[in-house]
Design a protein around this nucleic acid. Structure first.
Length: 576
RNA sequence: GGGCGCGUAGCCUAGCCUGGAUAGGGCACCGGGUUCCUAACCCGGGGGUCGGGGGUUCAAAUCCCCCCGCGCCCGCCA
């Protein structure tokens, strides 16, 4: 850096270390590891950029760690000393091992809330994008050093949950016929408890639209629940349905540290406190009927949605109000608060920000917004239209296909091992398929794509990992990587691999900063891909003098690949 | 109608925050590769108006403006 700066000045350019650093292209090209476009200097010097690049190369005195300098057109390319790069990279990977790529511990206590699906039945895969993005982000933030807690917000106060309790509080023989017929239409065999309990939900929803008396019953139930005396059945149903969702999520590696029940903010009266504070807020006003509302047009919200009601005419609270109480409780414990939300909650997130400002709360949550998965013909997944795909269904289908694949390749495996691998391949494919795309992109769910085990997929990466493991196992080396000489790792495939290994910490840092979790997926594929190229081009076990060094490279790759898989929540398989 | 998001080969997608060299991948398609460390792999090939138009700039997929298409939201629901 200093050498480069001096060179620029010697060649006649004026610049500062900061400006120069900003101009550098760290991704490099075929010509070098670091590139410097010189157009900017050329302009002030009234010189052709090509000419300046050439003269810069001449003025550069040797820089330690830089093997060669060249100019192509207006670009100056620096090639890092390959031996140095190899030494630095391998020694770091081995020294840090399972912590390679991770950051130093920080004191930014962080909370990631994700999934938080209403407990009205099994989880469909539209919602799973929330969980996968949230869980991956949590893993990356944890790796980058933050003390982290994940939370699932359980909506036990809503009308949705009340509808489930309403219908199950009657024996099925007394259900309205529309609901009974619909719910009993085709009970699948071996149906899970959460699916069974959630089955009447869409029919209840439809029924209520047409029956005012039933609607009144549900409204009364909502009141009863909110008043703090829910029927015992209520919590029991929610817990059973939640357990089903968590079981499916657990299979794809998603677990939560804490469950926060919405009703807890009513019980501890913190919602009352929020309402009082909102009553005193600068833009608050009571409606003639007694409802409390705030005009948030001052916060840049569109006119049509600028009046936010925070307490009903009957004095009860609303979702936003309780969400404020929830966020205040998060701010009391966490410095950084992240919410993973579907794009349908975008307005809600802005409203929340505005109301926090209204009560004088300076802190804000960070929102990570994703677009819901849609169904081929258009539209969101809906239980009613039969277009919803349950997560557990998707997993079962994937496991079935994976089992066939494993069986075809590995007839030697025993039953238990086959099942273990099929499960890992299937769930790895699902997680990868969803995390690989930037969350803000719309995704249309297609079975064939979700169940692909080839190309840019989870199993492709798992396979590279298993390959590396296999080589190391066959080497019968107790500590592969303990001895190596970097002079033996100067081939193109080796160097390309080392460069990718070296980049991993930077990728993790970037993702922690931007929340772009899909970059981890892209990185893992790139690493696996280059390892496969290396594997085909360069023999390891039979390479004589080069063997220890190549084994070291394989070990470093396996470590890094494994660390990346861990961040993605995809199982590492030693054989498949 | 307004607000927000998205638009990159037949299909899926990276790059956009922070403008730089022939726009990276994958699927599908065509042609090759397995007496050799796992072929869920590798090598080669064809395929691109980066939605359209204007602007800023030495330089635009990237920044700004307008338009078009698709999605979401605009409840005293959650």
């Amino acid at each position: 850096m200093d050498g480069l700066l001096q060179g620029c000045r010697d060649a006649g350019a004026t610049t500062t270390p900061e400006a120069l650093r900003a101009m550098l292209d760290l991704d490099g090209s075929a010509e070098g590891d670091v590139a410097l476009p010189t157009h900017r200097f050329a302009k002030t010097l009234r010189q052709a950029p090509e000419q300046f690049a050439g003269s810069l190369v001449e003025h550069l005195s040797p820089i330690s760690g830089v093997a060669s300098v060249s100019s192509t057109g207006a670009f100056v390319n620096l090639r890092v000393d390959p031996a140095l790069l190899a030494t630095e990279t391998l020694s770091r990977v081995f020294a840090r091992a399972e912590r390679y790529g991770h950051g130093e511990p920080t004191s930014t206590i962080t909370c990631v809330e994700h999934t938080s699906a209403n407990p009205t039945g099994p989880l469909h895969i539209g919602r799973v994008r929330n969980g996968i993005v949230g869980d991956t982000l949590a893993r990356v933030l944890r790796a980058s050093g933050a003390p982290l807690t994940t939370q699932y917000y359980v909506d036990d106060l809503g009308r949705q949950a009340a509808m489930i309790t309403w219908i199950w509080s009657k024996p099925p023989t007394q259900w309205p016929v529309e609901i009974a017929v619909g719910a009993a239409a085709s009970p699948p065999e071996g149906e899970s408890e959460d699916a069974r309990l959630g089955r009447p939900y869409p029919f209840v929803s439809a029924y209520l639209k047409e029956h005012a008396d039933a609607q009144a019953e549900v409204a009364a139930l909502v009141q009863q629940i909110e008043s703090g005396n829910p029927p015992p059945l209520h919590r029991e149903l929610i817990e059973k349905i939640l357990a089903g969702m968590l079981a499916a999520l657990g299979r794809i590696g998603i677990r939560f540290d804490e469950f926060v029940w919405e009703s807890s903010f009513l019980q501890d009266r913190s919602v009352d406190g929020v309402i009082e504070r909102l009553d005193r807020a600068p833009h608050a006003a009571r409606q003639p009927n007694g409802a409390g509302a705030i005009d948030v047009s001052a916060y840049g919200l569109p006119k049509e949605s600028s009046t936010v009601v925070y307490t009903r005419a009957n004095g009860t609270s609303l979702y936003v109000t309780r969400d404020i109480a929830y966020h205040l409780s998060k701010f009391a414990r966490f410095e950084r608060v992240i919410d993973v939300l579907g794009q349908d909650h975008r307005l809600h997130s802005k409203t929340l920000d505005a109301l926090l400002a209204e009560i004088g709360e300076p802190r804000r949550p960070t929102f990570v917004i994703y677009q819901d998965l849609t169904v081929p013909g258009g539209g969101r997944m809906s239980t009613r239209g039969g277009t919803a795909v349950w997560l557990h269904e998707l997993i079962e289908e994937a496991v079935q296909r994976a089992r066939a694949e494993v069986l075809a390749r590995r007839p030697d495996l025993d039953r238990a091992e086959l099942e273990r691998i099929a499960e890992a391949v299937a769930t790895g494919a699902i997680r990868y398929h969803i995390v690989r795309v930037a969350p803000e992109k719309p995704v249309i769910f297609q079975w064939e794509d979700a169940l692909s085990f080839e190309g840019r997929s989870g199993p492709f990466i798992q396979y590279a990992f298993a390959r590396a493991t296999s080589i190391l196992e066959r080497s019968e080396e107790s500590h592969p990587g303990s001895t190596y000489s970097v002079e033996r790792l100067l081939g193109v495939e080796e160097q390309a691999l080392i460069r990718i290994l070296a980049r991993f910490p930077r990728v993790v840092r970037e993702v922690a900063r931007t929340g772009h979790v899909h970059s981890i997926a892209g990185y893992a594929h790139e690493l696996a891909d280059q390892f496969n190229r290396f594997y085909h081009a360069v023999p390891v076990l039979t390479s004589g003098e080069d063997r220890p060094s190549r084994l070291a490279l394989v070990a470093a790759t396996r470590q890094t690949l494994g660390n990346a898989l861990e961040l993605l929540g995809i199982a590492r398989l030693d054989s498949m």
